[in-house]
């Protein structure tokens, strides 16, 4: 909080940087925890790959087509791997529970008296987490992608790379805003920790992390294509794999930005309403 004493104009930004960088230091102090986290993060990928292999194998034995939802086995492996990159941006673990806890236990007061915006503080805090994640991911992802190089059947164009990068920004924004909103429900409900699992599960399913959205029954995937959650996983993956037709790239992004805007507005509104309630109850 040293930075909070500075008053110059650009210290407003500096303040967040200090919060951000101290967070990172705190995380790095526990080295082993991070290394294990980074390695074991890939375990579910392993099970998924083997399960898909068994499924494709079952199809081969019965003489069915080797494509599922227009994807070969190799595509499926690539999809599930890229999902890690996408979720690396869009998942912000702990945000929901931390915010709800701060509200429930009255810890919000600690932040309200400081010259910082609580929600921006949360964003910085999570970015710090992400920084460490990516710091370590930079060591783990390249060998994995190198190992799988033969699985990539499509090398993205420059345009697809650009769209992909923008979609990752959307992914983080939607993930962060959504989790904050869910966390803020604690303004109205005393104990929401159980509810958080529902949300996490919905995210897991609707982002396409469990199954690529286009394999789901038609009525489901038509709906999920327009829902915000696809931007947390499905869309970034499909964009980079070249599975999104060229003329749809921009519309996909536009819908994403629309969701970011809607979520931003909603979260501001919730914060204002919630704070009124919070101070009325006395914290």
């Amino acid at each position: 909080m040293i930075a909070a004493t500075k008053t110059s104009a650009n210290s407003a930004f500096h303040k967040y940087w200090v919060i951000l960088s101290t967070r990172t230091q705190e995380d790095m102090a526990y080295r082993a925890n991070y290394v294990f986290g980074a390695i074991f993060r890939f375990l579910p990928l392993v099970t998924m790959i083997f399960l898909w292999w068994a499924v494709y194998n079952g199809r081969k034995e019965s003489g069915a087509s080797p494509l599922i939802g227009g994807m070969t086995y190799e595509d499926m492996v690539v999809y599930n791997t890229l999902m890690y990159v996408a979720r690396g941006f869009s998942s912000v673990p702990g945000t929901m529970s931390d915010i709800s806890k701060d509200i429930k236990d009255g810890l919000l007061n600690r932040y309200l008296i400081k010259p910082i915006n609580y929600l921006w503080y949360q964003v910085m805090y999570r970015l710090a987490h992400k920084l460490v994640f990516w710091y370590i991911a930079l060591l783990t992802f390249p060998p994995i992608f190198l190992l799988m190089r033969n699985y990539f059947s499509h090398w993205p164009t420059l345009w697809e790379w650009a769209v992909f990068v923008v979609s990752l920004f959307i992914a983080f924004s939607i993930g962060m805003l959504f989790c904050s909103m869910v966390g803020m429900l604690a303004f109205w409900f005393l104990e929401i920790s159980g509810f958080l699992f529902v949300v996490m599960m919905l995210e897991f399913f609707m982002s396409g992390q469990l199954i690529p959205l286009n394999i789901l029954p038609v009525y489901l995937h038509r709906f999920l294509f327009y829902a915000p959650f696809g931007y947390e996983g499905y869309w970034p993956c499909m964009i980079l794999m070249g599975k999104v037709p060229q003329d749809q790239l921009v519309p996909v992004l536009l819908v994403g930005f629309l969701w970011v805007a809607v979520f931003y507005g909603l979260s501001r509104w919730m914060w204002n309403m919630g704070l009124k309630r919070y101070s009325a109850v006395g914290g």
């Binding site: 960088s21 990172t24 230091q25 790095m28 102090a29 080295r31 991070y34 710091y135």
Partner: peptide
């Protein structure tokens, strides 16, 4: 931050 990285 540099120190923290070094500490890893």
């Amino acid at each position: 931050l540099g120190g923290a990285v070094q500490g890893l």
